[in-house]
Design a protein around this nucleic acid. Structure first.
Lengths: 207, 207
DNA sequence: TATATTTTATACCGAATCGCATATTAATAT
DNA sequence: ATATTAATATGCGATTCGGTATAAAATATA
């Protein structure tokens, strides 16, 4: 589509974007140099600049790419109909898979990497805040789909706790906590939040 | 104490360490240059090196200083005897105060700044993991002091949820979420976690 | 006073940083 | 065939990076 008039590109854009994402994911924004990106993508520096703009533009795109990858993985792995606890468990487990790498735990590019840059880079901060609100919203929708009987306030409370759990999971994964401990953490949180939801909807408390 | 033999120092060590902490807190490890530290402390670069070692050593010390500051602030602000919900609320509110700055939300130096460096710097990663475990442990102790009747498993579950809430609070604060929203978040989490604890200890469910 | 010891000050090192200016190459449109 | 358009390749350039070598200054001890 739209094969322009000039010299055609020699690189596959999605591959390049993925390589960029992995660079930033591993080392963060500031510690990743344009030379790192150049080596990882095979693109020379001016080509990077021409195709994606400056370093900050490239990073903002990587944040979007990571979020898109997350959404795709989640819709693929979470069963559409399940009890809240099973749904939460499925989400957390999927995210744990996604937060891991061959070279060890990496956590979330957005929540564990962009955060450090927020005060100095307003655009990164704004996008981070936006994706933060997105995680709250997604959990809210997930829970209300699986527990329509719960009160709105309880749904909100459970959703933000679930989001907090996700943030903590990413943090722990990146700090090197071994996978079994992370699984325990996720299971415990899923059980707790589900119990909270069940308790507030009038049913009995079954921890 | 130990007024050495050579030329006396012209700087106050605790002031210098605090200035260093604020630099790293604002911009993170990589984005903070030794020149930044030099300007902020008034110490020239070789003096910094002689007094605290290389950049990574200085940062590790800043992580310790920040944690110490947090502990001091908490023991000062959290009432020794209170219901779990009030205790959690007090902790979260105190941390929200601590995570704020005249120039805006900064979150936690350790959880929101060192995290990005973890994969590339094993020593930073190890210290991060250690302080992560410390936050779990502290919440666990806080809760079991205020709810001795609860089962060990419930205490563990509530403690990690509380720690997760703290991590998320720091993340949100640094991403620019306004204080009232953070207060709501903290209050909701404190209420939920306390309810969880009350529910599992045999009492009725009072959301 | 003379020497030892510690801190500060100046200057410098090689390497790496981001960005861009300037060719050069390759494909299409006329 | 020629002009146009776009992408790649080469390389500069000013700055900044972390770290250090060397010398000057200030104190304690002998």
């Amino acid at each position: 589509m739209s094969r322009g008039r000039g010299r055609p590109r020699k690189f596959d854009e999605v591959e390049v974007r993925q390589a960029i994402m992995h660079c930033f994911w591993a080392k963060g924004y500031t510690a990743t140099s344009l030379d790192d990106l150049s080596k990882a993508t095979g693109l020379v520096r001016p080509s990077l600049y021409a195709a994606f703009g400056g370093k900050e533009d490239i990073f903002l795109a990587a944040m979007n790419d990571f979020a898109a990858r997350t959404r795709a993985y989640l819709t693929d792995k979470v069963p559409p109909e399940a009890h809240p606890r099973a749904a939460l468990q499925a989400v957390f487990t999927a995210m744990l898979d996604l937060y891991q790498t061959d070279e060890g735990g990496r956590g979330c590019l957005v929540f564990s990497t962009a955060t450090a840059e927020a005060p100095a880079h307003p655009e990164i901060r704004d996008k981070l805040q936006e994706q933060l609100a997105g995680s709250d919203h997604q959990f809210r929708r997930l829970l209300e789909r699986h527990t329509p009987s719960a009160a709105a306030q309880s749904l909100d409370a459970a959703a933000v706790l679930a989001a907090a759990t996700l943030h903590s999971i990413g943090l722990r994964a990146r700090s090197g906590v071994p996978r079994p401990a992370l699984d325990d953490f996720a299971a415990s949180a899923a059980r707790s939040i589900a119990a909270l939801l069940a308790g507030s909807s009038g049913e009995e408390c079954t921890g």
